[in-house]
C-alpha cells in the first residue's frame, strides 16, 4: 500500500488514514466497528463502498462527514483535518432526513437560509432545483404527502443546493423499488457528471456500485472490518445504466468483485447463524 506523503500527495476531497472506530456497548464493553480504514477520494471521483451487513459502512461515512470522530487515525478533507462537521460535504442519509414540519421548498432551501442567503433568493434557487428533480408542482407539500421516491429527490436537491465539494451518500436508494431506483441512479449520474464533485456512495448492491462508480471498495465482514479489496471501474462514461448490465466489461468486473465479496458475505452470514444458534 502507498504511504501517505504530505509533500507530494494531492489534496484529497476525502482522506481517512488508518481510521478505526470503537463504540461503547450498553453493557460497558467495546465494539470495534471498523479497523485501519484507508480511504482516499480525489475531487471529481465517484467511489462506492460495498460490504456485507454490519461491516461499518455508515461509520466510515460518518467519520468522513465529521459526525463521528475516529478512535484512532486521522480524517482530513482537502488537506485540512476534519474537526466537527465537514462543511465542504453534504450527506444523504439512508433514512428519511427531511424535516417533516417543513414544506418541500423550505426543506430544500434550508441549507441556504441557514447560511444567511435571503429568503426570496433561497426560494428561487430551491425552485430551480425542484424543477431539476421533477418536483416543481410539489413545492408546498409536506414530506409525508410525498412518495418514497419523491422524498429522495427532495433530499437530493437539499444536499446539492449548497453546492458541496463532497457528497456522502449512505444507501440513499435502498428503500426504493427497483424501477424508481434505476431512474434515481440515472438522475444522480446526470447531476454528478462534470460537476467536479467527489462522491462516496455506500451500497450493499454490487450492481449499483459498479454501474455508478470509478472505484469500488470492498469491506470485510464485521466486527472490526477493514478494506479487503479495491477495484478500478474503467467502463467508459457516459454510461447507460439501463443497458450497462449486459456490457461484457461490466459482467467481467462483476464476476471478479463478487468472487471477493462472496467470501465476506458468507462469513457474515455464518457468524450470524452461529450467534442465533448460540442464543437459542
Amino acid at each position: 500500500m502507498r504511504q501517505p506523503d504530505q509533500t507530494e500527495a494531492p489534496d484529497y476531497a476525502v482522506e481517512l488514514n488508518a481510521c478505526s472506530k470503537e463504540f461503547t456497548t450498553p453493557h460497558g464493553g467495546t465494539y470495534q466497528a471498523v479497523q485501519d480504514i484507508d480511504l482516499k477520494v480525489e475531487p471529481g471521483r465517484f467511489v462506492s463502498i460495498v460490504g456485507p451487513t454490519g461491516s461499518g459502512k455508515s461509520t466510515i461515512l460518518h467519520m468522513a462527514a465529521g459526525l463521528l470522530e475516529p478512535s484512532a487515525g486521522t480524517a482530513a478533507s482537502f488537506g485540512v483535518p476534519v474537526r466537527g462537521v465537514n462543511r465542504r460535504a453534504s450527506y444523504m442519509f439512508q433514512q428519511d432526513a427531511l424535516l417533516p414540519w417543513k414544506t418541500v421548498i423550505d426543506n430544500v432551501s434550508l441549507g441556504l437560509t441557514m447560511a444567511g442567503v435571503p429568503k426570496p433568493e433561497a426560494n428561487d434557487r430551491a425552485r430551480r432545483w425542484l424543477e431539476k428533480v421533477g418536483l416543481k408542482n410539489f413545492t408546498d407539500r409536506y414530506p409525508h404527502q410525498l412518495s418514497g421516491g419523491m422524498r429522495k429527490r427532495t433530499s437530493l436537491a437539499q444536499a446539492w443546493i449548497v453546492d458541496p465539494d463532497i457528497l456522502l451518500m449512505d444507501e440513499p436508494f435502498s428503500a426504493l423499488d427497483v424501477q424508481t431506483r434505476q431512474i434515481m441512479e440515472n438522475e444522480l449520474l446526470a447531476l454528478w457528471q462534470e460537476s467536479g464533485k467527489a462522491v462516496v456512495f455506500i451500497t450493499h448492491d454490487l450492481d449499483e456500485a459498479i454501474a455508478l462508480s470509478d472505484e469500488v471498495i470492498i469491506l470485510g465482514a464485521g466486527p472490526g472490518s477493514t478494506v479487503v479489496g479495491r477495484y478500478d471501474i474503467t467502463i467508459p462514461r457516459p454510461r447507460d445504466l439501463l443497458e450497462i448490465r449486459d456490457d461484457p466489461q461490466f459482467v467481467e468486473l462483476h464476476r471478479e468483485i463478487w468472487g471477493r465479496l462472496k467470501i465476506e458475505v458468507s462469513r457474515t452470514y455464518q457468524s450470524t447463524v452461529r450467534q442465533e444458534g448460540g442464543a437459542a
Partner: peptide, 21 residues
C-alpha cells in the same frame, strides 16, 4: 438523530438546530 445530523451537515448552528429541529 438523523434529523439533527442532517441539519448539522447543512450547516446549522446550535441556535438554528433549536429553531428548525
Amino acid at each position: 438523530r438523523v434529523l439533527i445530523d442532517n441539519a448539522r451537515m447543512l450547516g446549522a448552528s446550535e441556535r438554528q438546530l433549536l429553531r428548525h429541529v
